[in-house]
């Protein structure tokens, strides 16, 4: 049993198994590691366990077996404070999940105020900077319901960034968006990647994967089948029959 991992890898998973209470075997011996600053894209057919895997990395799902080490901390060690760990891991959801009763700026400010307990003036200034950065300086005081999907997702990214995380998880961040809004969200993600943020992205945007990813993971039926650089995944070389089939269906 590894308790703490003294490396510089951001995430290490070893033989992770997840069986849901309904006996659905969603993850089978998933083993990988993700370096600091790496951008990893996870692809695979529906139901292959992509979301489940992503959600185990901040313990929105617990695992049945195996080990997960995030930033050197074993997630299932009794001494691990999962809330502290989550502060360091931002997450962006397919359905945005903005807090509808708070304004855009309040959404961004809530966690720094209530979790980090930073002074309000500092949090406010930081929220303004973040919202400017995602191009929503004009929308600070409106409620999420008054925003388009693309704008909401950019607020959600700003909200996650407000905790100054070392790693960001994205679960199909553009899948709920109208096609014309996909670009604005991907642009924000690209700029994050360019700044060196560690990112794990579940997406069907193969263009983004090809352009931004350092590595692409292909999952099927709960197993991690392929783990390779985008050139080899999207290249013409037929390296894996199941991946070939998936890509030919999607492209």
């Amino acid at each position: 049993m590894v308790n703490t991992y003294k490396g510089h890898d951001m995430v290490v998973t070893a033989n992770v198994d997840k069986i849901y209470p309904n006996n659905c075997h969603a993850l089978k011996k998933v083993t990988t590691n993700i370096k600091r600053g790496e951008v990893v894209v996870i692809i695979g057919p529906s139901g292959s366990g992509k979301s489940t895997f992503l959600r185990t990395l901040n313990q929105l799902e617990t695992i049945t077996d195996g080990d997960i080490i995030v930033d050197g901390v074993n997630m299932y060690d009794d001494r691990t404070n999962i809330n502290k760990l989550r502060e360091n891991v931002g997450m962006v959801f397919q359905s945005f999940n903005l807090f509808p009763h708070l304004t855009v700026k309040e959404n961004v400010m809530l966690a720094p105020l209530k979790v980090s307990k930073l002074p309000k003036s500092e949090v406010d200034a930081e929220a303004q900077t973040l919202l400017k950065r995602v191009g929503l300086a004009e929308k600070m005081d409106v409620y999420p319901a008054q925003l388009s999907g693309g704008q909401q997702q950019r607020v959600a990214i700003a909200r996650a960034l407000a905790m100054k995380p070392d790693m960001m998880l994205f679960d199909e961040p553009t899948s709920a968006l109208d096609p014309e809004m996909v670009g604005e969200v991907l642009d924000v993600m690209k700029s994050l990647a360019a700044e060196g943020m560690t990112m794990i992205v579940v997406t069907h945007e193969m263009g983004f994967a090809n352009e931004v990813a350092d590595r692409v993971l292909f999952m099927e039926d709960g197993s991690l089948l392929v783990d390779d650089i985008p050139e080899n995944i999207f290249g013409t070389v037929a390296n894996h029959p199941r991946l070939q089939k998936f890509l030919s269906n999607i492209l």
């Binding site: 929105l60 807090f99 966690a111 979790v115």
Partner: peptide, 17 residues
Amino acid sequence: SPGQMEAARSLGMTYPK
């Protein structure tokens, strides 16, 4: 929606918060 709780927890909030 359960997504609200998940979003809050993913920001590091405790369950009571």
